[in-house]
Design a binder for these strands. Sequence first.
DNA 1: TATTTGCAAAATCTCAAAATTTCAGGAATG
DNA 2: CATTCCTGAAATTTTGAGATTTTGCAAATA
Lengths: 233, 233
Amino acid sequence: MSTETTIYLNLRQRLTSGGFPHGEKLRPEILRKEFNCSANTIREALLRLSTVGLVEFQEQRGFRVPELSDSLQHELTHMRILLECEGACLSIRQGGVAWEARLSAAHHKLSHIESRVRLSGGEVGPLITLWSTAEQEFHETLIDGCGLDVLRQTHLVVYHRFRQQLITSDREFIYIPENIEQHKMILDAALDRDEDAVRERIQDHLSRNLMHPLPIATASKKPLAKSIANLAT
Amino acid sequence: MSTETTIYLNLRQRLTSGGFPHGEKLRPEILRKEFNCSANTIREALLRLSTVGLVEFQEQRGFRVPELSDSLQHELTHMRILLECEGACLSIRQGGVAWEARLSAAHHKLSHIESRVRLSGGEVGPLITLWSTAEQEFHETLIDGCGLDVLRQTHLVVYHRFRQQLITSDREFIYIPENIEQHKMILDAALDRDEDAVRERIQDHLSRNLMHPLPIATASKKPLAKSIANLAT
DNA sequence: TATTTGCAAAATCTCAAAATTTCAGGAATG
DNA sequence: CATTCCTGAAATTTTGAGATTTTGCAAATA
């Protein structure tokens, strides 16, 4: 038996890792049998997922996995750049050594997996889950020292949708060498406390899979919230 | 009788306009009678509201209106500055005359209501609903020409939570004259296409009620997404 | 007096079925 | 031939009740 929140998390995991084809209808009756629960419980989970954009909901017409969309992919990338640049710069200012250590650790794990992928000739295969998790953890840690819960929560929502959009287009898994190099460069810039370099490298890294490069409005100098973090104690 | 989405929207409206005291428990049984529907339908609406942060949900312990929190207030203000600055600068670049016209119109309405408030000696009273709506519309229009749906959606979620936090502390309704002046200055800077001025004035305006002023990381030069908007056609 | 224990009342969560709405395809109409 | 209308089937949404868990409060203990 599964509780409502368990089902919500399980479905979210599958939606962000290619468990459902884009555009597919999500029928409560089917999922009900799979989770061995009531149709109502499924409905509650799907409604929650719809408020964060991972499923589309239409009254009296049920639930659907969002279609692939280049423009949505671009929008989500734009949002990631905006949020990760801000979060990373604030982390540099306020995260302290503890944050630097966490980021180093996250990069080390990611780098290890990336190497294994490269050694197997770019074949991701069974490492894909490990890699996905490590990459998400690196990017989350990057903004983890900023002291702003809302920023982290918002980023996570955006990131999930980004992953959902990326998953079958599998562009993510093309430029392995560049990927490894870019993660390293972001780490170095962060440890150097060089905010401008961090911004630039995050932007390069995130827009690497887009058809058209992105001119950025927010690549700027001063982050926003030293005083906020002090308050948030 | 009410449908699920109707209930969701109705509750959201009340949650963002002081309809429930902070920290109050939201009992499905009570709401059930009010909407004349089943407890389950209420539960679905409350679960959805919990995913956007307007109600807190704990398993087996029901639903609660979030408590007032200075640090949350600061975080939400920070997010608003980040999103509105980016959205406004992109709008300046891509909104065209149509956007400028919409912004002018929104400001005109807001300005009219603000004047009426000032004339009645700062007593907001029955105008509060009109004023709230007009202010929200102005700030939404400000970022409305940016061409990024995700940015608008994200901003709306943040804005709702901001309003919920602000509502009973009613600091919003203190500095009427400054408020009027600040809206005008944002409008002027936008029509002048002066991005730096827009950023600065948005930041001043949004942080006006905070105890401590906010140093900003993202107050920068170049927005991000000309190419995105072109794609999004 | 302060803390813990136990029980009853109330609330939450899940379920299966009824009520409502949409969908697909064939017949009737222009 | 294209369009509209109808009808049965399938899917969605709501309901009310049962099972489980939490909460409030008084009694007991230290």
